[in-house]
Nucleic acid binder design. Structure first.
Length: 288
DNA sequence: AATAGCACCAACCGCCTTAAT
DNA sequence: TATTAAGGCGGTTGGTGCTAT
């Protein structure tokens, strides 16, 4: 169902949104809410499909979107959450207020994956999955770290919640904090093109969780974080901070390519933790 | 100054899930 | 229970701007 019925109409426009279209969509949703997305285009006077409107709203027009560079805290969070849930961008985004799954996905594909290599990947994928190349689904599965229980996972995501309440399988990613509240409560932030989101840095309640990572957590293989080239001019401090953080984790399971050595890339039985990881991934709520 | 290569990111595509009937 | 429409999500693509040569 790639194209919904509304998308099959010949008149629907594709491609980049014009400022006029944005304005129409924002004006309509601000006054009516979106309700049924399939009805939004017609009611808003847009020649777009509902799906396109939804995507535009969620990824760009939503007033609580944070834009600009990811902070080191956000990077840490993304790295850790990705090591837990893999390419579950929506889950990851749910823990990064104001960030969209699309944004995180793009960010990961463009930058973070330059830094991180996954463990127990096949030689072919290891050699072919050099910086920037996507990992296969198999890689994602076999590289999923081990979690023996939902509680363990939740301990990563939100240690305070685990301590405060009994296990609730339905709340695996249910944040008690209303997402995007910081910007959403401030009407001055709505549609203000001059607003710099970083001026209102919203520190996620999870932003400090990295220091509380469960010792059973198996992080991904890390490719010589100390040798990471600064990706952008002016980001050296943040990059160094991230690298220092990665080094400071002192997880015994933090592999680096330096640890492995190029000659050790022969196909070998995955460690028990990876087998567990597959089971953990399979037991994940909406794991494919 | 021209241009080839690269990186980023907005948007689309297609699959899966869920809710309604 | 089966069918269908719509929402949601992850993967992928293509356009644009930047950088190096």
């Amino acid at each position: 169902m790639g194209h919904h019925s509304c998308c099959n109409q010949q008149k629907v426009k594709r491609g980049l949104w014009s400022p006029e279209e944005d304005e129409k969509l924002v004006r309509y949703i601000s006054s009516h809410g979106y309700g049924c997305w399939s009805e939004v285009p017609e009611k808003a006077g847009l020649q777009r499909c509902g799906k396109s409107c939804r995507l535009r709203w969620i990824n760009y027009l939503r007033p609580d979107i944070r834009r600009g560079r990811f902070t080191p805290e956000e990077e840490k969070l993304i790295i850790n959450l990705h090591s837990v849930v893999g390419n579950r961008w929506a889950h990851i985004a749910s823990h990064l207020p104001g960030r969209t799954d699309n944004e995180i996905k793009n960010y990961w594909n463009s930058w973070i994956k330059k830094k991180i290599r996954k463990p127990s990947c096949s030689p072919s994928s290891s050699t072919s999955s050099s910086a920037g190349l996507p990992l296969s689904n198999l890689d994602m599965l076999t590289c999923t770290p081990c979690f023996n229980s939902v509680d363990q996972l939740e301990a990563i995501v939100n240690p305070s919640m685990v301590a405060a309440k009994p296990h609730d399988p339905n709340s695996l990613f249910g944040s008690p904090f209303p997402l995007f509240q910081a910007a959403g409560d401030d009407p001055h932030l709505l549609f203000n093109p001059n607003h710099n989101p970083d001026d209102h840095l919203f520190l996620s309640p999870f932003s400090s969780f990295a220091a509380n990572v469960d010792s059973n957590y198996l992080p991904p293989l890390v490719d010589g974080m100390g040798a990471i080239a600064p990706p952008l001019v002016g980001e050296e401090d943040e990059t160094n901070e991230l690298s220092v953080w990665m080094e400071d984790q002192q997880y015994p399971n933090f592999f680096t390519w330096e640890d492995v050595g190029e000659e050790d890339l022969s196909p070998a039985a995955p460690p028990a933790s990876d087998l567990d990881a597959a089971a953990a991934a399979a037991s994940f709520p909406s794991s494919p």
